[in-house]
């Protein structure tokens, strides 16, 4: 059941011959050397590869934070490469959620307010914000922790708040850049199970960059980058499943 080869639906994301060049002249660096990639709605894709393989560059382009030097990027049928900075910001605000390795929560700010932040930029009312943030925090298992600031939360809990912040806008795609990079293995497993749950239960498309094969094993599709190319793109027929007996600790 590989979604990658699903012939029916128009893909949500399509990269066609995408290149990215950094610098000019002698210092020119070809980070992406013509990438073709299609991702359908509802997929869970792990992007892997060594440092300097271009996976982070690809992730930035996929997240509409950066534009390709050449080629086409179609998101929801829109040509992202032709959008202005503000148009891409509006696209991110509406369709994308971000989870970072370093959590990037606002310090001295309650979990609730951190999660509400994207809704503030959308201009939602205080009640809508509060309700949506509470729902998002509940779906990452942090009900009761709304008033705690990042300093009062463990690393795993902070990353859960960050995930709640990413999904509070009900995005089409969740982009996670090394989401377990700062966590120990126990917390990492919890985060991966959470992402897997969000993907399967809520149908959120998840794109995740990781260099840990154990974490990538939770995804249903594995894309390997090497030296600016996609070296392999294969379905993961048996993603890692949470053990039924696992008791979650928050």
């Amino acid at each position: 059941m590989s979604a990658a080869q699903s012939p029916s639906a128009t893909p949500l994301i399509r990269l066609a011959a995408v290149t990215k060049v950094y610098g000019t002249g002698q210092a020119e660096l070809l980070a992406l050397k013509g990438i073709d990639l299609s991702i359908n709605a509802g997929e869970f894709v792990a992007i892997m590869g060594p440092s300097g393989s271009g996976k982070s560059t690809a992730m930035n382009i996929l997240g509409c934070l950066d534009t390709p030097t050449g080629g086409q990027y179609l998101f929801h049928g829109a040509h992202v490469e032709a959008l202005t900075r503000d148009q891409r910001a509006r696209l991110r605000r509406r369709f994308l959620g971000f989870v970072f390795q370093g959590f990037n929560l606002l310090a001295r700010t309650s979990a609730q307010e951190n999660v509400e932040l994207p809704l503030l930029y959308r201009g939602d009312s205080a009640e809508v914000r509060r309700a949506a943030a509470s729902r998002a925090l509940a779906s990452v298992g942090l009900t009761g922790w709304e008033e705690h600031t990042p300093a009062e939360l463990s690393g795993g809990q902070q990353q859960r708040v960050a995930i709640a912040r990413a999904i509070v806008t009900q995005p089409a795609v969740l982009l996670a850049d090394e989401p377990t990079g700062n966590l120990d293995s126990q917390r990492s497993v919890e985060i991966m199970e959470l992402l897997q749950g969000l993907n399967e239960a809520h149908g959120i498309t998840v794109l995740m960059v990781t260099h840990e094969p154990d974490m990538a094993a939770y995804a249903r599709r594995l894309v390997h980058f090497v030296d600016g190319h996609i070296a392999s793109d294969e379905a993961n027929a048996s993603p890692t499943r949470p053990l039924a007996a696992t008791t979650r600790s928050h």
Binding site: R92, G97, F100, N104, L106, P118, Y121
Partner: peptide, 16 residues
């Protein structure tokens, strides 16, 4: 800087 980066990433416009 990181906070500003985050705000921009989650969709804050330049003028906001």
């Amino acid at each position: 800087t990181r906070e500003i980066g985050l705000r921009l990433a989650i969709g804050a416009l330049e003028r906001e």
